[in-house]
Design a protein around this nucleic acid. Structure first.
Lengths: 360, 360
DNA sequence: AGCGTAGTTGATAGCGCTATCAAAATTCAA
DNA sequence: TTGAATTTTGATAGCGCTATCAACTACGCT
């Protein structure tokens, strides 16, 4: 005699369509526990005996069970929405950021919402932060927003998890996913030095981002380590824009004794440097080497293609979503806020904008 | 005596949390109809008397009712997911496309999924199309994918609604959201002519996209209308890439009698033309005018900023989502497939890359 | 032994919506 | 007019999951 189901939930007469997906009930039945217990295990709730948890997890894996996001958010009355807030929509890596975030979100069956904050004062930023905190369960903050104390503190105060992406430095109160800007800049500088360059110019990034400082520090450290003096007149302030790169490069190349290489803090400024060099009749890389940072589309658009540092923005965005989701779940269970700093690997991409300096 | 609710659905003892949002029941009660009728009206089902529909719609507006997406997709057992498929991830307007699509999707509480199809043969494209058709309810196709007969026909055969975005020409079997490329190119040409240019060069777009042909035809039509002959040696083939623009511009400016203006079929190629001009010691726009198309970030990155045609990609993407959602609903009700061609307005953005030709 | 106290588990009742089918209202043909 | 075909509406029963609380374990403690 077969053991009859405890309750015929899908009575024989039910004509309702049914998706083919495996449900929590099937897992429960197979594991010999109640659906509620499965739910608890799947959601990482603490109050389940270790043995039971093991059993359920194994069954989940066997049946390849995936929770139905719609049912979940309906029952929990909490649409797990995550906001990605950005300023400066023309930022070159926005599309990669979006692709990554969207990918992570759809894998986790989470709704991703976008919010643009442009031309905001500190006060309106605070207000906006308070407002968004009420409609989403977590926030991803790319630079330069993640550097804003006002925004971060407001979000933290509202109690929602925040992940700073590509912020240069680890911040004690919010989680972050980033590369090691210092090391990356160091490697790039070493790369230039290994080609025989010593008169290396540096175009700094926007001073409102910690990554800018770190990249500069990495440059300095590598130069110092190689015993190559940094000529302070060869260090120009930039602001991550093409225009600022144009101005900086102009000053650099107008000198009587121009540098043999320019290390720009991002690709847009590097592209500008290439343009200025061309306008002055110089060939890249024969007469001057130029390198960038970030590996945005710009790097492969210009000619010659730029040697640069690849920041895996898409992957970083996807893992931000994961991080956030875990925090959200933890928070719901009343556990303490956990802050993590996730440093991912960068890559030095060698292309055609670097060569050994000429005999001059 | 108050009229008692027909059924106390939230009994006095229910301690369950309840989101503040207005539900279909409240609308139904206020309108004096059943929830089912409200559902039908909201979903555009045909079998509702006009008077009833009116009443319900008014009530919906009064209460500012928005359907709960989670409940909807749970009940309908159909996660309304929409796929945005793209090739060529470095396409300059991808980020705008994503922003728009995401915006539209989150407003409609729809899950947007991304799919990248790169380096595919016609056969693998077909297979991929068949596969995606099983997991989503609708597809958005940007160029050049929307030009692929194989992909379109496969998707159409699978019976899922498709919207081609920014495809040049209206295709009879799938819906489209686009600008009028012909007219836009015409206007841009007129703009150039109005400055006094007559030796106008044209860099064509990639031949695999109908928009390319339309832009060229618009250029020709405007020239003909103004009685300005088109010098065939001043028309170069490009492929929408910076590199191809470089080569085309190089040929154009190497001529003994170079053009006084270059109309490139997109911004990347226009930027390349500016770069070539600079390298040859020419000033833009004093010595030569350069215009682009699309108004991608590139247009405002280079110096001088490019006069170009703005295609409202974000808005187009958002309305693609709407279009798709409507088709999906219609299809579910067993109605016939409807194909629409939505042409949105473009804008001629005047910036700093155009001036009257010199006396030379 | 007797009785709390904390740790586990399960039964129940919805979350807000829609598929389904039956009932009611309407239209149309004869 | 009347019966049948048609359209419009509503009652019912879930979709798959989780909040809630009751029940049922252990494990100490007086």
């Amino acid at each position: 005699m077969q053991n009859a189901p405890r309750k015929a939930r899908n009575s024989a007469t039910s004509t309702r369509r049914k998706s083919a997906a495996v449900t929590i009930h099937e897992v429960a039945q197979r594991a010999g526990v109640s659906p509620m217990t499965v739910s608890r295990v799947v959601n990482g709730n603490a109050n389940v005996r270790a043995a039971t948890r093991e059993l359920v997890m194994r069954t989940v894996r066997e049946l390849n069970y995936t929770p139905n996001a719609a049912a979940r958010s309906l029952a929990a009355a909490s649409g797990t929405r995550i906001a990605l807030i950005y300023t400066n929509p023309s930022s070159a890596y926005l599309s990669e950021l979006l692709v990554g975030a969207l990918d992570g979100a759809s894998k986790a069956a989470t709704q991703l919402v976008l919010d643009t904050w442009d031309h905001m004062t500190r006060a309106t930023e605070r207000a906006a932060a308070r407002k968004i905190a009420q409609s989403v369960a977590g926030v991803i903050l790319p630079p330069p927003l993640c550097e804003s104390k006002a925004v971060c503190s407001e979000l933290v105060a509202a109690g929602i998890p925040v992940v700073a992406i590509a912020s240069g430095r680890f911040q004690p109160d919010i989680s972050g996913v980033r590369i090691d800007d210092f090391r990356a800049a160091q490697e790039m500088t070493d790369h230039l030095i290994s080609f025989g360059h010593s008169r290396i110019a540096f175009i700094k990034g926007h001073p409102n981002q910690t990554a800018s400082a770190l990249r500069y520090e990495g440059f300095q450290a590598a130069m110092a380590a190689a015993g190559v003096p940094v000529d302070p007149t060869l260090v120009q302030q930039g602001f991550f824009t093409y225009r600022s790169g144009l101005e900086a490069a102009e000053k650099l190349l107008a000198r009587k004794k121009p540098p043999t290489a320019i290390f720009a803090s991002n690709d847009d400024m590097a592209a500008a440097a290439v343009s200025v060099a061309h306008r002055r009749g110089m060939d890249v890389p024969r007469d001057i080497s130029v390198v960038g940072f970030d590996d945005t589309p710009t790097a492969t658009t210009v000619w010659p293609e730029l040697t640069t540092i690849r920041q895996p923005i898409a992957a970083m965005a996807a893992s931000s979503i994961d991080l956030l989701l875990r925090s959200i779940r933890r928070r719901k269970d009343g556990e303490a806020r956990v802050v993590v700093d996730h440093v991912v690997a960068h890559v030095l991409v060698k292309r055609d904008s670097v060569a050994a300096p000429g005999p001059g």
